[in-house]
Design a protein around this nucleic acid. Structure first.
Lengths: 199, 199
DNA sequence: CAAGAAACAAACAGGTCTGTATCGTGGAGG
DNA sequence: CCTCCACGATACAGACCTGTTTGTTTCTTG
């Protein structure tokens, strides 16, 4: 909190802190958090190790910042898609499943960062685990909002079903064909919506 | 392969190899693979480190053996449940979702070992990754068999949907109430089955 | 121009990791 | 009885890890 709001130096186009976080995020996602040491991060980012520890107190905090960044990106995309379908909840859900399925099918897709980090750090009080847990709660909360607009008889149940579906897609890239994800997600969602409306 | 079939020593009730694998499996699952060193495994198992490296050439091989053991356990339970419902595929699926949901709701549940290890080791050629990939393919294969017996119009699609559902449950224990998992799984499966039969 | 903040560079501390090497012991099978 | 070998115990090698320390340089700002 000593700086960052005011720009201390714009000589380098990007802030040092941003460059560290950007580099760390890529490395953490591609190779796993525990497999990437801080020495590699600073070497790849071209910064001094002291800079990393000034901006992020510990590696754990850097991991939490990584997940927070992914969280913001995710809801940023979500929000941009959502505002195109304010009048049609089913179309909005379809659109979300579209870009989620597209991501899952990408060649270098390595799963949901939040889930991966949670798998790497069992301790429930790890700073990154809090971010991950909040992210998953937020997913279910937003899905419940959509379920309500869909006039589901039990919106929270439909939200739970859709959350299972999406999280399942995140971890199933191993057994999913690239083009299969989106249509499978959408057809499944349609079946669940129909069931949630009738009986 | 030098022993194990013939019993070289039954003086100790359990084989040294089994004791190592048993101990390692518990530690790996509870704390994560990378967080557990071989020194801890041998100390906890009460064996010499040389014994560990004699039976398992490397730690990676021990991890693969851990997943293979979990795989066998999983399909062992699956098989015992399946043979009680040879005449009713829907009842069999319900029964599977019953014990899977029960496991997911357990207090110390830490997710599917296969998924967790895959998250910890990005390298596709890691020995444990092969076990994990085969496990997930086998899940979808068995689900397809059930889908066929259910006379689904597209059995492979229904199998894919059910696989998403089950894998989603494995990773959603963070946001799922303990008693919520089984009924949510079963009601979702029923909706998907109904949809797969009609249209 | 002067002062202070921020960055770089490089070494270091102290611990942990995987894997190996060495030596001693005790039981099983020929 | 005697030889083999699985096993235990321990020390070690070499690499890697997080985090700190020290000192210098560069940039911003008053």
């Amino acid at each position: 909190m000593t700086k960052s709001a005011a720009k201390p130096n714009d000589h380098d186009a990007v802030d040092v802190r941003d460059r560290i976080l950007e580099t760390a995020s890529t490395l953490f996602y591609e190779r796993g958090v525990r497999a990437v040491g801080v020495d590699l991060v600073v070497a790849e980012a071209g910064v001094a190790k002291t800079s990393l520890y000034r901006h992020f107190g510990t590696k754990d905090d850097l991991v939490a910042a990584f997940l927070a960044r992914e969280d913001e990106d995710f809801w940023g995309t979500w929000g941009r898609v959502a505002e195109k379908h304010v009048d049609d909840a089913e179309a909005e859900l379809d659109a979300h499943l579209e870009w989620i399925g597209e991501r899952v099918g990408r060649p270098n897709y390595r799963g949901c960062p939040q889930i991966n980090v949670a798998a790497e750090f069992p301790e429930a009080d790890h700073p990154a685990r809090r971010v991950a847990a909040a992210h998953k709660r937020e997913l279910r909360r937003r899905l419940k909002g959509i379920a309500e607009r869909l006039s589901a008889r039990r919106p929270d149940e439909l939200a739970g079903q859709l959350a299972l579906l999406i999280n399942g897609a995140f971890v199933s890239s191993q057994v999913l064909e690239a083009e299969e994800a989106t249509p499978l997600l959408q057809r499944t969602a349609h079946a669940l919506i129909a069931a949630a409306r009738s009986s």
